[in-house]
Design a protein around this nucleic acid. Structure first.
Lengths: 190, 190, 190, 190
DNA sequence: ACTTAAACGAGACGGTACGTCGTGTCTTGCG
DNA sequence: CGCAAGACACGACGTACCGTCTCGTTTAAGT
């Protein structure tokens, strides 16, 4: 390990080690296995260093998560509403159910149910952007004239992604292409 | 307090006190404020008595929850699919966002994201019945000929309740009648 | 097992089983391994039956012990003071250091250091008789004229048995015949 | 309270508070009243801090005891064997029967009867030094020519202190000057 | 180069809760 | 009416983490 502190600003090395350790612990041992002490030990970092930069273990996981989300959920254009939606929902479902980012997402959304303050944090740092991503295919379709200008976009978003979240968070049913197809087909045929 | 144990099994008195205490603590202090020690103290019960009959605090909350769910989610018939669905989704949304049963629900579904074993328990003890309740309006509509016999019921259920769960668990947006109306209208107009 | 209670008095069977179980547990697992629950389980007896007849685990051990002590410490006459003393101290040392009665004795005398009430119980039920046994050789010697009539018998007893107890309870040194010989010789040569 | 831990090892403040609390509890409530929880509460210390430095409550009491023993049992020279012995046995008896160090001693020697591992610890940390103190008057007498060079010192020590321990640990009889006088007189007149 | 101050690894501290064990009390139904 | 069975309230156990607090070291910016 290189340096042990310096006068101006935090150690990027320590930051990466913490994020990495938190992620690893979550995947290996589950949410209950993620502890500040465990992260500190695994990252070779002092607890105080963690407390200096983060407020809780979920703050750490959120940091990890945000990087992944921006990378994995970039919307791609496919020309038609149906194609756009199918591609986006596929991408979203894969993200939410994935072993890495998905596991972190489920941990965070689970914790948000237990902690209203964190729920607000999550909304500010993630959900607001996420809703932009969710509506992007609809915005494009409106621009193309495929959808009416007065569409209730938030409601439409809920109707599209809601079924996916329901399977991921509640039932555990697989989100296969057939299901996505039904959802999209039903939405488009309006 | 009357008796302190007998050979014919558990004390109903203690059981009720524990469920009540767990519920109260959840509402007053949130999920983190629900501890076995706290429940025991509030219920006037020994920790060992809790561990004798429940495996964890979420098992206790699940017990509380199951009684409420059966009571509050009984499906009522209103004659038409649209009316049935509107009534049911309204009832469901009220249940999920409520201060009592809703709080317990959100705690449980949140914990299920953190603990795969508990997720399975929750599925077995709650979700399987819940899906029967969710599909009841559709089953009746099929019987009446309002919906085709070959409808993909699970997918249809996801499209109906998914948007509600998305608002409750993710966005925190209110589930008002207008929204329910849109969801139902969109579903029925197929 | 024969009966489960009867209308006329306690079960001798249960009593023997309890004493035996307590003794066995002490030898196998040491004093900390002797618990009322353990005794009850090992004896196939209900805890309540134990509490009905004994006040504590040391009371049970005391019961066991008293039977052994009366049997193993009966004084024998050998004709001369020196021989009598040598024989008695040998017998005493063997008793105190033995694996069965000795273990119980050490447990009891140990507990007496921790509990003044039990110390008094032990004095009443054991020590008073024991002192009679201790002084018997001296009484006989006085009767034979080998020792003066005005001998301070309690002090003399302390000087004879004290060294033995010191080795048993404090130092753990072996109480061999040579040592007993020295003690007796020194006492007799007065 | 000032500091709460630092990298240079333990808090002397916490250590003193624990020893003091253990001692106080023993005197006030007896051995059974000495619990780790009680000590921690009385000392204003966390249980973990106790477990970090001591293995059991008897280890704590032993620590207390060792400081007292070294202080209170220093041998003093009085010129003759008889005087030396009388003074030393008086000092020893006072120490063993005292309300402070004596109570701790009796608790420890009692526990040693219940726990062979602790008995060994007690021997290593206390008894070995104590035997040096016990024999000091005899060593001096041999140096002065008052006692033969080939004296069996361990046996002689047992004969001198054994009667005292017998009274303290077994009979509870008072160890008065008359008794000490008899023991010494009998020993010296050889 | 020399001082200085922030960030660091380390780890002891006062706490809270955990899940377990044993206590002594009770209630029930059998023999 | 004594007994086996066993549930109960209680208290302590020893452990795991929490978040806070020194401590002495490392490092780069500002003398």
């Amino acid at each position: 390990m290189a340096h042990h502190g310096n006068r101006h600003g935090r150690s990027e090395e320590a930051r990466r080690a913490v994020l990495r350790a938190a992620d690893d612990l979550l995947v290996e041992k589950g949410f209950a296995g993620v502890t500040i002490e465990g992260i500190a030990a695994a990252a070779g970092v002092a607890k105080q260093t963690i407390y200096r930069w983060w407020g809780s273990k979920t703050d750490i996981l959120l940091d990890t998560f945000l990087e992944d989300a921006a990378r994995d959920l970039a919307s791609q254009e496919h020309g038609t509403l149906a194609e756009d939606l199918r591609a986006y929902l596929r991408q979203l479902a894969d993200f939410l159910t994935g072993n890495d980012a998905g596991a972190v997402f489920r941990a965070l959304i689970g914790h948000a149910q237990h902690d209203a303050v964190f729920a607000e944090t999550l909304r500010t740092h993630y959900l607001d952007e996420q809703r932009q991503r969710d509506r992007a295919p609809l915005d494009r379709a409106i621009a193309r004239g495929e959808l009416p200008k007065d569409l209730d976009i938030p409601a439409a978003v809920d109707m599209l992604v809601g079924p996916v979240y329901h399977r991921v968070l509640m039932t555990g049913d697989p989100v296969d292409d057939a299901f996505i197809g039904e959802v999209v087909e039903h939405f488009v045929k309006r």
